[in-house]
Nucleic acid binder design. Structure first.
Lengths: 126, 126
DNA sequence: GCAAAAATAATAATCATTATCACTTTTATG
DNA sequence: CATAAAAGTGATAATGATTATTATTTTTGC
């Protein structure tokens, strides 16, 4: 990977955002700083960064795709109302990969664990 | 929900398939029996059945959407080579919802837990 | 400095899914 | 049984997210 201003900005934008933004959200945020930025560039770089394990791709339950700069083991909670993505610490269920191996013989390389419900913020306004 | 031949066939097709097919796969399978069946009808019915909790929608890690007739608590293992979806029994990690609640205060209504790796069948042909 | 490799912006193309709509089937009721 | 309202269907157009293409620009090792 060669250096590029665009990639640096895209990564910075993701890292500054706690909300696990989508490609489109990153596009709009980053364009404030670099109006010439192209949507295709955002997609290209996010996928590239994910392939190189610099960031992580999250497939949400509603089919939307979010990105996460946090590479440590953890899970996600996705609000069914506002679609925000929250982090759930790994110690809720550590060592799942080993348990799957023991039970099924299947070797887990990666996992995507998301819980679904209404977040505390949205519950307030019910 | 009123009765319809099409919905009955779509459900039967899903139940007879162990492989957690996609909408398109169900479309092609069911058309063998009812060639006039429309793709839109398949999508409409699968979503309707999922909303009514007769079947379950699975969002795979690669973004593809599969359907599952098994409503019991269980997880999935998705092969990164052949994209088949396997079942992993719930007792690998029971009571996750309660653990999330205890740790984060977030109320889990549903979850989507998929593990990723290469299945035993694909490993044979490496 | 300069050529090769990689990246970009803009936009066209793709692909899964959903919306629309004229028509048909189901079903409750008299 | 007749019938009308509600729900469902098939065909296809529309949508929306993502990817491919391409001419041009940047980066980087020598």
């Amino acid at each position: 990977m060669k250096y590029s201003k665009q990639r640096e900005l895209i990564l910075k934008t993701l890292q500054e955002n706690v909300i696990h933004p989508t490609a489109d959200e990153i596009y709009h945020l980053a364009r404030k700083e670099m109006p010439s930025l192209s949507l295709a560039t955002v997609y290209r770089n996010l996928n590239q960064l994910a392939e190189n394990h610099v960031i992580r791709k999250i497939e949400s339950l509603d089919g939307s795709v979010h990105f996460d700069h946090n590479l440590c083991n953890h899970y996600h909670f996705i609000c069914t109302k506002c679609h925000k993505v929250y982090d759930v610490p790994y110690d809720v269920a550590p060592d799942l990969a080993n348990k799957v191996l023991a039970k099924t013989g299947l070797w887990v390389e990666n996992f995507d664990i998301s819980f679904k419900g209404i977040c505390q913020n949205c519950k307030k306004f019910n």
